[in-house]
Write a protein that binds this DNA or RNA. Sequence first.
DNA 1: CAGTATCCAGCTAGATACTG
DNA 2: CAGTATCTAGCTGGATACTG
Lengths: 148, 148
Amino acid sequence: MATTPAQTRAQTKAEYDAFLAACPSRKLLDRISDKWVALILAALGSDGAHQLGADCAGEPRSMRYSELHRLLAGVSQKMLTQTLRSLERDGLVTRTVVATVPVTVSYELTDLGLSLHQMMRGLKTWAEMNMDDVLANRATYDSRVAYP
Amino acid sequence: MATTPAQTRAQTKAEYDAFLAACPSRKLLDRISDKWVALILAALGSDGAHQLGADCAGEPRSMRYSELHRLLAGVSQKMLTQTLRSLERDGLVTRTVVATVPVTVSYELTDLGLSLHQMMRGLKTWAEMNMDDVLANRATYDSRVAYP
DNA sequence: CAGTATCCAGCTAGATACTG
DNA sequence: CAGTATCTAGCTGGATACTG
């Protein structure tokens, strides 16, 4: 019995999934497109100015859990912890526990994390230069579709 | 009656959501983290070599719907159409219909789309240089957690 | 050829409550 | 202070079937 078209498609798709799973760019995209990763990187990668939108470059900053929670006002405890853990797991941030009472935990970017933060700033630059155009195109498109 | 802590938090969160919604970087991330956007950009932004992984730079290439569907073997019709439409909406690709029988539709990057593709290549470069480290850290972390 | 329409499984993020 | 645990609503992507 010959292979059906459906089987051929399934085979092709399986190979493709494998390719995607192995692709470094895909993995990077998966990592940075997390809702809170960019914000945490921005918070830890910026110096003094506690302002998310600020255009800043300097020494990476150490921040405590509660500081981050206050700065990223919209994040839930669950997501903040989860995101920090995954960043630690990937060697992008360090987690330091000081056994005071109550405990003090601080987070800081590693060199790798700092490097990622630099790259994110390139992305941010592109966004600031071009997203207005994108948005304008989007509005034009929508108005054309709404009133053809 | 004074405002409760819960109200204060809700207020803060609302402001934060507004900040996130207005943030150009966040919008850019939302756009490029779509599962198929990077692949379509890579396909349309590369010249001749019909190889997704290839490191290529040249003239943007015009491709037909069916060509894209064949090249991105894992994509469903729904997602390919949906993604292409949203890219067209944002002025990142052009959609050209030629009224042959049956119709011929081709897609090409705009200058803006090409610019985005250039930025994505920077991201790809970072990924190729550093994702191995990230993966290694991840493996180390997991083995430490598994056998503490 | 190049779509559109519909339905649904799976994952994610958030709310909420509890703790060493 | 800095988490963990649990439950669930909503969104995203995929499968499938149909069409100008």
